[in-house]
Nucleic acid binder design. Structure first.
Lengths: 256, 256
DNA sequence: TTGGTCATGATCCTATTGGATATTTCATTT
DNA sequence: AAATGAAATATCCAATAGGATCATGACCAA
């Protein structure tokens, strides 16, 4: 008997293959299944209380999403954590796309978009109320961050580009990295001590309030229709995120 | 050193679900299954001589590719042809991404990339040998076009962006549109007569040689490292394609 | 002893078959 | 003509048999 997953992971049977898809997706994204590890179809189906068939279909879709990889006749594995190179490439992609979405959103600003941006900013500020650091705070921050950037992407008026941007799941990849870094046992190992030092530096560097301030500035530029300003601020925002987070990624890569 | 065989040397075992994925994909792209029509799993599995299970898995992957859509408990349908709006959005996306890839490829030009570009140009010129118009010529042109643009995307040095670009399958969508327009019966209908007029104008407008000339100019700019020039030429190339093809898209949309 | 090869068993992916459930269609009734 | 119900159709899931891969360990040769 392997009660690996919590009871909440069980499925309310309605449209089983879709439900299964969502559950497995969350299991991967939330690190319940470790990055780079094998995914056993039989175990998973037994764990979720369904037959292998919907699990198979769910995994096929997850492969197209880039969350698992399939080796024929050998099964599925979750994709490994982002490498440093992939992290840099993802940041490049974000700069390219989001400079454009910010400018476009500015050019076609509407009262509805303005209201939505202000509401999301308020939600973001609410997360800073509790000033603690660590996984929970980081999760709340990335949730807000994901919603904020997705909102701008949708406001740019090009659904295709918005979809292409959202399907990178950049915030989920960052969350996976961060969770992985915090879940490493903090024993006396010199590597782990250095990682913890990097993490504490990251957590304490005022990242949360800094991010919210950046968002506020970007939103204001968009609302007043300052396309060039919004574009420039967006670029700086992403670059800042890259500079702050890169040491964490490098440490993780050197450990793994 | 272990002189292991390259990846391709691995024996291609019969993995039925992968095989059916490719077959169904071609069926949809080549219009053997009409756009917007239902896809019957039982009929398909009987047609292909396999059981419904691999067909189901293949369809799940195709949904992530955007070629079919699933309605729970009602089955799958092929996605309709591109709307005018989607065509415009796709062009916007291409301009945004490909200006960047062209510039980046110029900035990091290598002898290998130079050779590959020249080879692809030669292949493109070979397609213009037969000066006929119509579906076959258009197919040869889009095949070359897809390879040329994918080559530049890969040469930009960012795999993530290259993948994101290639997964739009823009050339396949264009091919579907073109094939759909040519497959409509040329009866006495006034709409069809107008469509045929638009198509003949398109086929006769020197699109083939014009495209190859554009490609040659872009390749030359990349090879000599002229990032700004390559970026600008790429933009004009895509805009030209948009202007020439848009009337066809509009006619199709007005008919469907 | 050391190194490599080969057989054997376990594990897991893969695919078919059959049945349960939802939807659609069509005939019947009001 | 509209509504209701029942048969037909198709999706959807489960159970199971069939194969491939990997791991373990024994055997043989150097």
């Amino acid at each position: 008997m392997s009660t690996t997953f919590p009871e909440g992971a069980r499925i309310a049977r309605s449209v089983l293959s879709d439900e299964t898809y969502g559950v497995i997706r969350d299991l991967v994204l939330e690190h319940r299944i470790a990055p780079g590890s094998r995914v056993n179809i039989d175990s998973l189906s037994a764990e979720l209380g369904v037959s292998p068939t919907p699990v198979r279909e769910a995994l096929a879709r997850l492969e197209s999403d880039g969350l698992v990889v399939k080796v024929p006749l050998r099964g599925y594995s979750t994709t490994p954590l982002l490498t440093v190179r992939e992290f840099v490439e993802l940041t490049q992609f974000r700069v390219l796309i989001e400079q454009w979405t910010a400018a476009q959103a500015s050019a076609s600003i509407s009262p509805e978009t303005t209201a939505a941006l202000r509401a999301e900013l308020a939600a973001g500020r609410a997360t800073t109320g509790a000033r603690e650091a660590g996984p929970d705070a980081f999760r709340a921050l990335t949730d807000h961050d994901a919603r904020f950037h997705a909102l701008i992407a949708k406001s740019a008026g090009n659904d295709l580009i918005a979809q292409s941007f959202e399907r990178t799941h950049f915030h989920l990849h960052f969350l996976r990295l961060y969770l992985a870094s915090h879940s490493t046992d903090a024993d006396g190992d010199a590597d782990h001590r250095r990682l913890n030092a990097v993490l504490e530096e990251y957590d304490r560097s005022g990242q949360v309030s800094r991010t919210i301030d950046n968002h506020a500035a970007i939103a204001e530029a968009i609302i007043v229709g300052d396309a060039d300003g919004a574009s420039q601020l967006m670029r700086e925002h992403i670059e800042f995120s890259r500079v702050r987070f890169l040491p964490v990624v490098e440490m993780i890569a050197s450990l793994g």
